[in-house]
């Protein structure tokens, strides 16, 4: 038997070996959060930070301004920005599975609370970047003439929301309806639950439904396709805010904090203003009542 033949025979048998390796050497779940934040291995030369990459997991509720702000930051500091966009929950799941990332920037405080509970972010680094106001969105031209929550209950009106159990804007939609007593009357008109923030906006952009319960800022995403109908100040049950925090997996904590500063107080704020996001609490309160709670959590009732 030639040596090559023997070698090839051995090669053909390594699947069996692989099998045992994979099954044998597996890490159990639950050990994720126990990773101690390691020290940054790269020399930190503030000012000339080129060569540093910051990786962000971002909920798509803030895609337009974050993209712009990241570009500005990269031009200014030379830091390479690696951005992941998607549903806030999906982003957290990815960050958790991949065990990497410098910052987590979800679209609601609910997911940040979850991230803190699972010890995936450093709680002391959390800051508020901007505020989200729940509102009604309709296709451009408002074909069904929606003026408020009352109109959502009218017969023949098709309403869409995001899945309340997994998407933040969906949870807010349920809260708006429940807390204002419209849940029973509007629910029959809810024709669909969609699985992400963007899909919710898409519902009215394409015109598949007559109205959605989304964010006030959706209008600015596609001004010619989406209109916003503001809720009455007393109808806003909670003001959502956009929290950002440093991930426990980050190896560039100093740089990450610098970026947070940039977004909250620095030029990054301009990007959010330009995209018409509400950046101050005072401004946010103009859409609601002075004592409307900001952030926190709300439990989804069983029947949803």
């Amino acid at each position: 038997m030639s040596r090559r033949c023997i070698l090839l025979r051995r090669l053909a048998s390594w699947p069996a070996v692989m099998f045992f390796l994979v099954v044998g050497c597996n890490e159990r779940p639950g050990s994720d959060g126990k990773h101690s934040p390691g020290t940054s291995s790269r020399p930190d030369s503030s000012g000339q930070a080129s060569g540093v990459t910051l990786e962000l997991f971002v909920g798509s509720a803030t895609k337009p301004p974050v993209e712009e702000a990241a570009q500005v930051y990269e031009n200014a500091t030379g830091t390479r920005m690696l951005l992941h966009f998607g549903g806030s929950g999906k982003m957290l799941a990815e960050m958790k599975l991949a065990r990497r990332g410098d910052l987590y920037f979800p679209g609601s405080s609910d997911f940040m609370e979850m991230a803190k509970r699972e010890r995936l972010v450093l709680p002391e680094t959390e800051r508020r970047v901007a505020y989200l106001i729940p509102a009604i969105n309709v296709p451009a031209g408002n074909p069904k003439g929606i003026k408020g929550l009352e109109d959502l209950a009218k017969p023949g009106v098709r309403v869409g929301i995001a899945r309340p159990d997994s998407v933040c804007v969906g949870l807010y939609a349920a809260e708006v309806l429940e807390r204002n007593g419209y849940a029973a009357r509007v629910k029959p008109n809810i024709v669909t639950h969609v699985e992400s923030c963007e899909k919710t906006a898409q519902l009215v952009a394409i015109g598949s439904v007559d109205a959605i319960l989304g964010w006030e800022v959706f209008h600015y995403w596609q001004p010619d396709k989406i209109e916003t109908i503001l809720l009455k100040p007393n109808e806003v049950p909670r003001i959502g805010y956009l929290p950002i925090a440093v991930s426990v997996f980050s190896k560039e904590k100093e740089q990450a904090l610098k970026l947070i500063e940039f977004l909250v107080n620095g030029q990054g704020r301009e990007s959010f203003r330009r995209w018409h996001y509400v950046t101050t609490l005072e401004e946010a309160r103009t859409y609601a009542l002075p004592d409307t709670p900001v952030g926190g959590e709300w439990r989804l009732p069983e029947e949803w």
């Binding site: 779940p29 549903g87 806030s88 929950g89 999906k90 957290l92 799941a93 958790k96 599975l97 997911f111 979850m114 699972e118 899945r163 159990d165 997994s166 998407v167 699985e195 992400s196």
Partner: peptide, 16 residues
Amino acid sequence: PVSIYLNLASVSLDRA
């Protein structure tokens, strides 16, 4: 498949 995605989106990895 939708169910799997939704579970992932609410970070219920085990279930997904």
